[in-house]
């Protein structure tokens, strides 16, 4: 995005909180996930470290969204245990924000009012809410669109507003469900850069679901592969969030591995 250059200076002022403390650790032990009549993922053991970006890839219908919705506590686990920092999850909470693929902004609220919503829920005083919401919108390059209704702006702008809304609540984990899936390739690359910029300094743990292997390998510290109703593997990604790492031999090899395991 053209605005990424004027985002950086603001970031420093915001990252007052020691960034390493904000994240949260999420652990799944022998967890079975899905709806009661239709379990999708069985026997999942996964340890998501504080402040890391874990990307999740897999064919459609493999349970990527189910995993996220379970981590957000919108869906209870059918078996096993899911902990946050060693304590079992107890219902949805502002600590674990969820970003949806599209159309999750409330259409009757302006972009700014949408971003103010988590602040209102968190009992931030009204005047402070407005200031913070405008800051977040500026950070994702939407300062000029703060008073627009969601259906008046483009799909990419709506997703940026969703990102601002999710981060405004200062969550300790951000769960993202194919947030850029509906965007064209060019907008998507811009959004990935923006996401990296904006996340830096929040220290939040991120679980990012995508069907795009290249996106997963660019954004993630680690990538989790789902398929055949199971967690197939979790792999470390060499040189994450580095656009020049595309032809790094280690990255190329990992990309081939991931594609083969998804193909079978």
């Amino acid at each position: 995005m053209s605005t990424s250059s004027d985002i950086k200076p603001e970031l420093r002022t915001v990252a007052q909180a020691p960034s390493s403390v904000r994240g949260t650790r999420l652990t799944l032990q022998a967890a079975t996930l899905g709806r009661r009549d239709a379990p999708v993922l069985a026997d999942v053991d996964l340890d998501i470290a504080r402040g890391e970006i874990l990307t999740v890839v897999g064919p459609s219908g493999c349970g990527k969204s189910t995993l996220l919705r379970t981590l957000a506590s919108l869906l209870p686990p059918l078996a096993g245990e899911i902990d946050q920092d060693g304590h079992p999850l107890a219902g949805p909470s502002a600590e674990r924000a969820l970003i949806f693929q599209e159309d999750a902004l409330l259409p009757w609220r302006t972009l700014r009012a949408n971003v103010e919503l988590p602040l209102a829920i968190g009992r931030v005083p009204r005047s402070e809410r407005r200031v913070q919401a405008e800051e977040w919108l500026a950070r994702v390059g939407l300062a000029d669109h703060a008073r627009q209704l969601p259906h008046r702006v483009s799909g990419g702008q709506r997703q940026r507003a969703q990102l601002a809304r999710a981060l405004a609540g200062r969550p300790r984990a951000v769960l993202m469900d194919e947030p850029f899936g509906a965007l064209d390739a060019q907008t998507r690359a811009g959004m990935q850069d923006l996401l990296v910029e904006v996340l830096r300094g929040t220290g939040a743990t991120v679980v990012f679901v995508t069907h795009d292997v290249d996106e997963a390998l660019f954004l993630g510290d680690r990538v989790a592969l789902l398929g055949a109703g199971r967690l197939l593997a979790v792999r470390d990604i060499p040189r994450p969030r580095d656009r020049t790492a595309l032809d790094d031999p280690a990255r190329v090899a990992l990309r081939r591995d991931v594609l083969t395991s998804l193909g079978t």
């Binding site: 957000a72 919108l74 909470s93 924000a97 969820l98 949806f100 159309d103 999750a104 409330l106 988590p118």
Partner: peptide, 18 residues
């Protein structure tokens, strides 16, 4: 109503009245 709206508010920590 679209369920996503409700789920979004739930994951912002909103309760029943919100």
């Amino acid at each position: 109503l679209t369920p996503v709206w409700e789920e979004a508010v739930l994951t912002m920590g909103g309760g029943r009245w919100r």
